[in-house]
Design a protein around this nucleic acid. Structure first.
Length: 334
DNA sequence: TCGCTAGCCACCAGTGTAGG
DNA sequence: CCTACACTGGTGGCTAGCGA
């Protein structure tokens, strides 16, 4: 069995399509004394997938792991083991995990704002219109599979927010009403469903996507990068799970200076992450402005969280920061 | 000897629970 | 009531040891 190698080293960034693509390196899983267990697990995982599809059922990653407990010697010890095998199967067939009948447990991705999501009732097929302006202080939760959803909106743009805290703040004060936008909470690294949701929504109405993350290397090179161009690890399906039209609103290293934000010193791991991104990340290497931003951050030796804007008052972010930034969309980092 | 892989580790964001 | 931990999702890197 041959699988595409899924790592940053085996992807290239294509400026015109806007996402990572595989370079074609393969790894091989053969049947030998040492690999017999993994080999068997891979086959069993495929069999489980087949069964799920035939019975139109699904299993969470955790459930699939427990199913393996019946596989005698081929059982998995820890869930991460079954996860990696599952991803191998996924890459092998060049389909996404959900199509194989494997789903993540509900997690991440809240939506609020001027948007109507059109879903269907599973039993009756009846059309369900979900109005994201009518959740009060709550929000609509992005489902596991977003492929069949349709959208109606007159919003001007989509604003993706890294932390739930900042999202809550903007929702509570109805920021989406003031700015006529759709707010989406990423909750750390965005899940695949979340990325796909943003992508389909943006494509269907030609909306620009702005991303608001913490001002640290992790926020840039993991969270933002993963949303925009996909990841090395899921390189076989980045074409669908990415948002090429995304741009970084903040917090940029320059913002820390311009807005006199309180900062924390960069930890060693932050510096390491930044240097690593400069050295190995094809996306960063493609954009000079990103390299400059990361180098500037390393030089400044500080990082700033989204919450740092609270220094100027709790509502400063809504009244000053976001309007000022949105007035200069052209200056956003790519 | 070299290169690859499996298995382990690190990191982050968020949530829920157990215990002091 | 707060802290610590375990678990979910995600990302990467390191390295011993095996096969070619």
């Amino acid at each position: 069995m041959k699988f595409p190698v899924r790592s940053l080293a085996n992807v290239s960034y294509n400026g015109s399509t806007g996402h990572f693509t595989l370079k074609g390196k393969k790894k091989e899983r053969t049947l030998t004394v040492n690999t017999v267990k993994t080999f068997a697990q891979t086959l069993k995982m495929m069999a489980l997938s087949k069964e799920l599809i035939q019975t139109d059922d699904i299993a969470t990653k955790r459930e699939a792991y427990y199913v393996s407990k019946n596989w005698a010697e081929a059982r998995f010890k820890e869930q991460p083991e079954s996860d990696t095998v599952m991803e191998d199967v996924e890459a092998f067939f060049s389909v996404n995990r959900e199509q194989l009948g494997f789903v993540p447990e509900e997690k991440g991705g809240d939506v609020a704002g001027r948007l109507v999501v059109i879903d269907h009732d599973r039993d009756t097929g009846e059309e369900l219109r979900i109005d994201c302006t009518r959740f009060g202080s709550g929000a609509y939760s992005i489902p596991i599979s977003v492929e069949d959803l349709k959208f109606e909106t007159d919003a001007q743009f989509i604003l993706c927010i890294e932390t739930a805290g900042m999202f809550q703040r903007l929702v509570k004060h109805n920021y989406w009403k003031k700015a006529n936008c759709i707010l989406i909470s990423l909750g750390g690294v965005p899940t695949r469903a979340c990325r796909r949701f943003v992508r389909r929504l943006a494509d269907s109405h030609g909306l620009p996507v702005y991303v608001f993350v913490d001002g640290d290397p992790y926020g840039y090179s993991n969270i933002y990068r993963t949303l925009k161009v996909g990841s090395g690890n899921a390189a076989h399906l980045n074409e669908y799970f990415c948002v090429p039209q995304a741009h970084l609103l903040g917090i940029t290293p320059q913002d820390i200076i311009d807005y006199k934000l309180p900062t924390h010193p960069l930890k060693d791991v932050d510096i390491k992450r930044a240097r690593d991104a400069l050295k190995n990340d094809p996306f960063i290497q493609h954009y000079r402005s990103w390299q400059l931003a990361l180098e500037q951050m390393i030089k400044m030796k500080v990082r700033a969280e989204q919450q740092a804007l609270a220094k100027h008052g709790l509502n400063y972010v809504m009244d000053e920061y976001l309007p000022q930034k949105l007035a200069n969309v052209g200056r956003f980092l790519p």
